[in-house]
Design a protein around this nucleic acid. Structure first.
Ligand SMILES: [Mn+2]
Ligand SMILES: [Mn+2]
Ligand SMILES: [Zn+2]
Ligand SMILES: [Zn+2]
Lengths: 135, 135
DNA sequence: TGCTATTTGATAATGATTATCATTATCTTT
DNA sequence: AAAGATAATGATAATCATTATCAAATAGCA
């Protein structure tokens, strides 16, 4: 957490119990969290944080580069930042989210962006289907 | 439009001026439309359709397989169905949407899905960046 | 310890989408 | 062509996720 303070402070942000709780929760699992899921998980832990604060905290932590965001469906989910870049595969039946990385897919995206004169800044790739258990 | 009736009727749906207007608008351009854009375009044409009807119509037409939907950002956009499958490249500065298709990217997605035991049903790939004019 | 800018949380507001329901229109059947 | 059954429309209320407001609380620094 010490490193957090070195990131947080120069942005004139303060480390609060709320921010600590959200960050600890996300860093403590491999899950993908949305605001509601975080709220519920913290309540189970007897940490109740106002929902507005959760939304604010997620934005702040994302902007500070301390968590990563993924849009799945039309909802924003957050996950720990300490994983290398990857894309997602979502089971339409059970909601299971699996991660994958394929260097060729990454490279080809850059190729095609260049071909269109686009300066690529990012991408969102989500594969929908049925996981092994659900098909 | 005759073919529409062959599709619409067996689903016990009715062809109405509103549905005709929305379908004609979408089929008449290469654009990607959201509900608000359709509402504005129709009003300019002196066709004013209730916004609720526009949402309903878009769902109905999508379910009937008469238009295609794409989620861009966290908003649903619709486009004509008579284009081969493609993905999208969005300029973060001007909102320009370009289309591309890359067979290798398609194939590799199937490969990786299989590798994860997923039965792939679809995917959403959006590349974000800056178009030639905006960089 | 005290000061001040930042943060929180309760709640109101917003924006997009969906539900409700009385009225209107379509399509099928006479 | 008219009627009847059923589906669709549109005005508006409701919902859902997210953001704004603002007084009270707090973190970090002197
Ligand atoms: Mn992930
Ligand atoms: Mn398209
Ligand atoms: Zn599953
Ligand atoms: Zn542009």
């Amino acid at each position: 957490m010490i490193i957090i303070i070195f990131i947080i402070r120069p942005m004139s942000l303060r480390m609060t119990p709320q921010r600590h709780a959200v960050l600890t929760l996300i860093n403590g699992s491999a899950r993908h969290w949305d605001a509601e899921a975080i709220s519920r998980a913290l309540q189970k832990n007897d940490q109740r944080i106002g929902i507005a604060t959760i939304y604010r905290t997620l934005s702040v932590l994302e902007e500070a580069g301390l968590i990563a965001a993924v849009v799945i469906g039309q909802r924003k989910h957050y996950e720990r930042i300490d994983k290398p870049h990857h894309d997602h595969m979502v089971c339409e039946a059970c909601g299971r989210i699996e991660e994958f990385f394929h260097q060729d897919i990454e490279t080809l995206q850059h190729d095609i962006a260049k071909r269109h004169g686009f300066c690529i800044q990012g991408h969102s790739l989500v594969i929908f289907g049925l996981c092994r258990q659900c098909q």
